[in-house]
Nucleic acid binder design. Structure first.
Lengths: 140, 140
DNA sequence: ATAAATGCAAAGCATTTGCAACCAT
DNA sequence: ATGGTTGCAAATGCTTTGCATTTAT
């Protein structure tokens, strides 16, 4: 890719970025691939992966990893906290402000240098809570 | 494994657990495998993976995932925060208390149910900071 | 006796990579 | 023209799984 050189603008990367920017969900590489194919049927999965990596390095998007199976990507590159639904797997953005003061506290307490932190909450989302209520009602 | 049935005690699982309990590092499945082989040369990687999964489900250990490539395991099953060194990849336990109050706040604010959260700090650890200082000195 | 657990090897699956052709600068 | 980028397919690497055999209860 680009070890020291510059980065060219390509249709593929632009499309990938616009797809990612146009959704509030936090899609997987494959979802993005499927979506991008609708406009550019010949694009390859490898290109999607390469560009997601490039975009992440460029600071345009965020790569999220929950569990060890696959990554999700976030078109919003400003770090924020997430809520992960353990039932349906959906990932939601949280509005609460990122507490950066805490980084300094950790740095001081442990003699390390802290660049960032990540925080996620896990549980059941509104939609899934509603579903399980329905089920309860149905059983009644 | 055990869908509804009981769980048998096996030499393999006991050894895996004791290896994991005897280290403060947060080893990968493969590291554990190599370690366990020293005492039980015929054990298979599959067995290690199966038991790590079982032990996780039993609540005896913690499975950690940083990045999307592979899992690390923690012999300390009581949840705690971690510090991940971006230079050497080592994972350190943090002593600060887990703030469980915040779960309820998120639940209330977003109308979701929250079971847990995870928090990790990223940066450079003491050892790596010392190393880069050495390099600086050497260059001088 | 019986079903859980093991060892082995094959399969799975997300992601990466080598390479020739292509295209942005 | 130059070298970053792509499409394609093969390869990687961690993890899971099917199956015959072993072993704990």
């Amino acid at each position: 890719m680009n070890s020291k050189g510059f980065i060219r603008k390509t249709k593929q990367r632009e499309l990938i970025l616009s797809v990612l920017r146009s959704t509030k969900s936090h899609p997987t590489a494959d979802w993005i691939y499927q979506e991008v194919r609708k406009e550019m049927p010949n694009i390859s999965l490898g290109t999607v992966y390469r560009n997601l990596k490039t975009l992440t390095e460029m600071g345009e998007i965020l790569e999220l990893s929950y569990g060890s199976t696959y990554s999700r990507f976030d078109g919003n590159s400003e770090y924020h906290y997430h809520f992960v639904c353990e039932q349906c797997g959906r990932v939601y953005d949280l509005g609460l402000p990122v507490n950066d003061v805490i980084n300094g506290q950790i740095a001081e307490e442990y003699g390390v240098s802290v660049s960032r932190h990540r925080l996620e909450f896990y549980g059941t989302c509104k939609a899934c809570l509603a579903l399980s209520e329905e089920e309860l009602t149905a059983v009644k």
